[in-house]
């Protein structure tokens, strides 16, 4: 415990906790919507797209990768979330195709046009998060704070419309809600969260941040509002616990957070079973 307090004096540990909590909060807010819209796997697909975009940014030697990563991920999110209606390649197939395609191209580019002496290290770090969350600069922390607050504000502001679009798109259209616009909004927010979350848990584990808290909350509560609030609390607690455990015991940050999420899901499943 004393060791943990000593570690907390380091600025990069405090940055990690701030960013971790904010990302966990944002991902859980949107997680409920994505799970209910049957887009649980979109986090995985978009994170692979972000990985590919990051590889391109690396090849182009850009000091600020966000310039490439964020727009590319947003465009792909829009394409994926709009596939439901008028496309030949439907939902899960489109996600799988873009996901593995971006991953393969990203890795290929990183190998052929390598600008780093440690390609395997870079790949491993991007896929599994590694210690990226502990090596954030002040600029990255501020960017994350601003984007997270924007995401939370948009969600709260458009809560009713997002709720309507989530449960019944056709009904909300009939009621005069511009469903396409809100689907676009959800796609953009999802992309922003995915790009931010890559620092926390890496590409391969992002889906856990989106899915686990929402599913855990659904074991206990039934209403959209209760599930959303419970999901946010569980996600923040799991992220905080996971980061603290990984700092104290030297375990990999991303996988420790996901393990904490899985543990919380197990507890919620038990509570849900007892309630019935």
């Amino acid at each position: 415990m004393d060791k943990l307090f000593v570690y907390l004096q380091y600025p990069f540990v405090r940055y990690a906790l701030i960013v971790g909590v904010l990302i966990a909060l944002c991902s859980s807010l949107l997680g409920v919507t994505l799970v209910l819209k049957r887009f649980s796997f979109i986090g995985d697909g978009l994170s692979h797209v972000a990985f590919g975009a990051m590889a391109v940014a690396g090849v182009l030697n850009l000091s600020n990768e966000m310039i490439v990563v964020l727009p590319v991920t947003v465009i792909c999110a829009i394409l994926l979330l709009r596939t439901g209606n008028d496309t030949k390649i439907k939902g899960d197939a489109a996600i799988a195709m873009i996901s593995v395609g971006a991953l393969a191209f990203g890795y290929l580019l990183m190998n052929i046009f390598s600008t780093s002496a440690n390609v395997s290290g870079d790949v491993c770090s991007t896929l599994f998060g590694s210690t990226s969350i502990l090596t954030l600069s002040r600029w990255e922390v501020w960017l994350c704070v601003v984007l997270s607050l924007a995401v939370a504000a948009i969600f709260i502001l458009f809560y009713n419309r997002i709720f309507a679009v989530t449960f019944d798109e056709n009904f909300s259209r009939a009621a005069g809600v511009n469903a396409d616009r809100y689907n676009l909004l959800i796609a953009v927010i999802t992309a922003v969260i995915i790009v931010l979350a890559m620092n926390l848990v890496g590409s391969l584990l992002i889906s856990a941040l989106v899915i686990f808290p929402a599913l855990s909350a659904m074991r206990i509560y039934g209403s959209f509002r209760s599930v959303t609030i419970c999901s946010a609390i569980l996600s923040v607690v799991s992220a905080l616990g996971g980061i603290l455990v990984s700092i104290a015991f030297g375990t990999p940050v991303g996988s420790t957070i996901v393990a904490a999420d899985a543990l919380v899901f197990g507890i919620c499943w038990l509570i849900g079973s007892l309630k019935k």
Partner: peptide, 17 residues
């Protein structure tokens, strides 16, 4: 020397940054 691998790696990374 008393830190775990994550902390040493992160502190050294900060020294470089």
């Amino acid at each position: 020397t008393g830190m775990n691998a994550n902390m040493i790696y992160s502190e050294v990374y900060n020294m470089m940054a």
